[in-house]
Design a protein around this nucleic acid. Sequence first.
DNA 1: CTGAAAGCGCTAACAC
DNA 2: GTGTTAGCGCTTTCAG
Lengths: 339, 339
Amino acid sequence: MSVGSTERGPRVTRPTIVDVAVRSGVSKSTVSNVIRGVSAVSPRLRERVQAAIAELGYRPNGIARQLVQRRTSTLGLFVGDLGNPFYGELVKLFERHAHLHGFTTMVSNTDGSSERETASVDGFLERRVAGLALLQSSGDPALAELLRLESVPAVVVSSHDPSFDSVGVDEEKGVFLAVQHLAELGHRRLAYVTSAYVEERTNRIRHASFAIACVEHGCEQSEPLHLDVDAVLAGAVPAAPEATGFVAANDLTAIALVEALGRQGRSTPDEASVVGFDGIALTALAGVGLTTVAQPLEEMARTGLQLLLDRVGEADGPPRNVVLEPRLVVRTTTGRSGG
Amino acid sequence: MSVGSTERGPRVTRPTIVDVAVRSGVSKSTVSNVIRGVSAVSPRLRERVQAAIAELGYRPNGIARQLVQRRTSTLGLFVGDLGNPFYGELVKLFERHAHLHGFTTMVSNTDGSSERETASVDGFLERRVAGLALLQSSGDPALAELLRLESVPAVVVSSHDPSFDSVGVDEEKGVFLAVQHLAELGHRRLAYVTSAYVEERTNRIRHASFAIACVEHGCEQSEPLHLDVDAVLAGAVPAAPEATGFVAANDLTAIALVEALGRQGRSTPDEASVVGFDGIALTALAGVGLTTVAQPLEEMARTGLQLLLDRVGEADGPPRNVVLEPRLVVRTTTGRSGG
DNA sequence: CTGAAAGCGCTAACAC
DNA sequence: GTGTTAGCGCTTTCAG
């Protein structure tokens, strides 16, 4: 028989539903009924129970509930780098919506490592999460295979994956907008720039889209550049291709590129134009003024959660892949070719 | 009697420890023993059990385990704004260390709202988190009172709170370094700048420290400025005091300030010098080159987790408050007064 | 070294 | 309406 402390305040063992039942002179079920607000309980009893709950400082044990219900209201989130404001913002929005639906989120920062991913999946699965959201993943096929095997609801957010439910922007369109913008400004020689801060699959599709868009706009493609962002942060001055227009795989890479070009004496937008991808709010500020292809973060988070909750709610059927529209935001890192 | 599916692959009901026991012809306890790796189990049985586990694709149910053990290995994290890279980075580091210690983290983004905080505490408490980390909090005394009442281990990270275990930087020292730097550059008229993106308690202490440091360095204080960062992001041109040196309450505010000053035709560092606080990596890039007071994030996360785990491990005693050293990072938003 | 049995705190039939 | 009962899947004495 559990006792708990009769007084509120620091306690060793928390009061249980039985304590509440005893104190209010009713059965466990009645207490349970008032807690859950189901099946009519007479006002008198309800009041007594609520009083006992307040006096005891009782809090339902969610663990026990989850065990008996054989389901949790916990979602597992994978993100590559929370230090990237794009993902920080995305996690924040996703968590906000999840909270609105009564779900709590567990976060795993994977640093893009598939070992870390796998380890976290194990943890999440043992904790019986209701579903998983991959805000950024290593793309390791073993992960997809594992999730399918375990048949846990999962959604890919901010990227595309035909084998999962997913929501992301129209990558081709986004890159197209960037190239079109540069072409209209008179740039004829363009270069694609990526870095370790870009998810590999995303990088591939953006790069491919870049190549296509260049052809469509009659632009010449320079050698693509793989920028070492950390080195730039540390003060290095990496070489960059001789293009006048640059399309970066994401904003983080773009601002590092602007910095790197600056150190070579190639200032934006006079000597070079740079377009980013993501739409990080910060990039609007402090001399950055990055021209970029913005993703509809809010809508992405909302849609991603919805897709996931649909699956959690047993929805069946083939994967649904939602494609959102990107938007070009012109600021000050792009200008007419040749000044 | 639970059955589960005998084949691996999509399943409705997962195999339990009983399924494993039956399949390997041993008792539940023996299976439990091999899972937990405790109490010597004969190699033969262990092998049989492990084979059954693999064949069934069995995964221990953490929920059941947590229930019977009456404790979880889950930590609750409060953060005001994950979109602020400072906190994104902090959460990432904290989660990393927690993971290393076998803990999983649940995140709640509070937007500094104490209602949201309270709602999340309820959720966390029902889920019986082992401990709570406040990476940023509204400072609402009701929250502190609630946590004390519930006697849940808690730690405040990146800020100070005598009523909790906490780890943060020496705020006075940090602001002192900023003011000293400006004074040495010949600035005699200084202004303190804050915004809605600064935790209130942190703001108060930094502002107070600023006042003291100004006196110590014989500087004049202009009217403090409360900057509307979102308005700046949206393109507004807010007025700023006539000082030549500015100390911002954090980096986000600082870069918005640099931008706002720029729009008034007061470029940094020529017409005005700005010092931030936090040390967000991004501020090193792309024309920002923010001079700032950097906080030792990694050490903060590590120490914070350690303090928390000590409490989770029943450690008793008065609150421990760890104070870390801030470091001035001079970049390009500060220069000699008058050019 | 292995197994049987008693719960952890709660929900969800099913009786009363 | 309200109480009784049988578990959810696991750990943990305690016998054998």
